[in-house]
Design a protein around this nucleic acid. Sequence first.
DNA 1: TATCGGATTGACT
DNA 2: GTCAATCCGATAG
Length: 214
Amino acid sequence: MREPKLISPSLLARTALAAAPLLLGQTLVRVTEEGEIRCRIVETESYGGAEDRGSHAFGNRRTNRTEVMFAAGGIAYVYLIYGMYSCLNVVVGEMDDPQAVLIRAVEPLSESDQELMLRHRGRFSGKAANLSNGPGKLCRALRIDRSLNGYPLVRAGGVLRLESGDAADELPIVQCPRINIDYAGEYALKPWRFYIDGNPYVSVKDKHPMPWRG
DNA sequence: TATCGGATTGACT
DNA sequence: GTCAATCCGATAG
């Protein structure tokens, strides 16, 4: 077994569009009072730049909520959606350029990881993948909420951190339009969602996914 | 201050 | 397939 290692900061200095596929296969580590949970990122979405109408920071909208998106890459952007679910983003890119990658699905790396995640999910039914096959679900399973907004993700010993996992160029990565952003006009059609093809934890399989070529 | 609606989910028809 | 839960951010007034 390889020594766990934080992911390369250079990956997080890229734009969201470049970083989103590269985050697939990487390891997300969450430490709670109950123990450490390790999981693999299997689905992401890019929200990048002032011109992306789907992004909270569209038009360089700089508010209390979006402020963390303007920081240099390497911290978490966690927001509350529909009054009841948290969503986790990885802020990437240069300072003052709002770039973030939404983590939409993760897969527990071991049975003990799965058990801890299960304990954090209140009601739960159906197939195992329902544990964390969606942005709100994975935040429940990993006990992530807005108290972690702005948290640094590349710090050894951090309670939420990114470690290197599988290399993206060895994975069957596909891309397709993002989910639930009808308000974004033509930007709702951009193929800025990425996932590991065939992975059971992917939230929604696209009808016509395109192979991603790094 | 008031209003609108959301980068979702689970329950139900 | 439909729909409501439930809070707060963004915007209008």
